[in-house]
């Protein structure tokens, strides 16, 4: 098995549970892989939904500022020491989800305000939202004590270093909820990805469908960012690659994106913790390292991206 500490396969299934190798597998690596899979699947599905909704392959929660909104909420929760938890959801998660909702509301409002919003203005709005939230996060860090600052900074890098099944189990219901919601909206996403007017004329209750998509994305991104930090570009790359392979029909695209996104983040995380072993890199650094060039490639690719408008 791959990692800083070699774990022989035979050790894993030995009945003696006190073997440190078996402990590493069951208590550290397995939950980590599960978490990476869930987070990757959720982020990829959220990206797919936003790309359809904004009819733009560059529009994802990360590029439109939803992750930084969630980050701000989480940082605020850390800073104010909201440790109170309700319904098994921690204060940080609630803060991140609130932040995600806020950012989505801003993005949504901007999209509504300028109805004929082009790809360019949409992305610029995302950049502006990102800057705004980032400056607020910096402000929080500046006023925080050393311990909180480090916690926020480390968290902002994005990482999957969790011990035990607590984290994956906390993410699971929200990602599942979001995915079921998106699965029920596959037909609506197909039509919305063509045009909102057309969707309405084919019988989609457009506002209701959009609200549900925003809700599903907020649930998933909020809780994933709260626990794993803002892991960028998974939602940009995975749906795009799946669409190239399978075409734009969301009934097939959603399951493919879930599988691909999950697998992608597991592989990225495996690479992140082995490339400089025994030093483990935060996975967010790794995905951004891949995603930045991919984003530029999409932007510069000859085609009609610039004109693809609402």
């Amino acid at each position: 098995m791959i990692g800083g500490q070699a774990v022989p396969l035979t050790a894993i299934f030995q009945p003696s549970n006190h073997d440190p190798a078996a402990m590493i597998f069951w208590k550290i690596r397995l939950p980590r892989v599960l978490l990476a899979w869930l987070a990757g699947a959720g982020l990829a599905a959220a990206g797919m939904a936003f790309q359809a909704l904004f009819r733009n392959p560059l529009a994802t929660p990360f590029t439109l500022g939803v992750s930084s909104g969630a980050s701000l909420g989480a940082a605020l929760a850390v800073r104010l020491g909201w440790s109170a938890s309700g319904l098994g959801v921690s204060g940080t998660s609630l803060g991140a989800m609130g932040g995600a909702f806020l950012a989505i509301a801003i993005v949504y409002g901007l999209a509504r305000l300028k109805h004929d919003c082009t790809a360019g203005s949409m992305l610029l709005a995302g950049v502006a939202v990102n800057f705004f939230f980032s400056s607020l996060i910096l402000l929080l860090q500046y006023t925080a004590d050393f311990y909180d600052t480090f916690r926020i900074l480390r968290w902002l890098m994005g990482g999957l270093q969790m011990v035990g099944f607590d984290a994956p189990l906390r993410v699971l219901p929200w990602v599942a909820l979001g995915c079921v919601l998106l699965a029920s909206l596959a037909g609506e996403l197909n039509l919305l990805s063509v045009s909102e007017d057309l969707a309405a004329s084919r019988g989609v209750a457009v506002n209701r469908a959009k609200t549900l998509v925003f809700l599903a994305v907020s649930c998933m991104v909020g809780v994933i960012v709260a626990i794993c930090g803002p892991i960028g570009f998974v939602g940009l790359m995975c749906p795009h690659i799946c669409r190239l392979l399978l075409g734009p029909d969301h009934r097939y695209l959603l399951p493919a994106t879930l599988l691909f996104g999950g697998a992608f983040l597991v592989i990225c995380d495996t690479a992140a913790r082995t490339v400089f072993a025994p030093t483990e890199l935060p996975v967010g650094i790794f995905t951004s390292f891949l995603g930045g060039p991919f984003f530029l490639w999409l932007l510069l690719k000859p085609g009609k991206l610039g004109e693809a408008s609402a």
Binding site: S193, S195, G203, G247, D249, E307
Partner: peptide
């Protein structure tokens, strides 16, 4: 909206780029 679409169909003015290219059969199926 769904009941309405069973009674009335609408063909918008042509033009406008598609962000994600459906095939003709997929599009008709929509």
């Amino acid at each position: 909206q769904r009941e309405l679409a069973r009674q009335v169909a609408y063909v918008p003015q042509a033009g406008g780029n598609q962000a994600f290219p459906f095939t003709v059969r997929e599009y008709v199926r929509l």
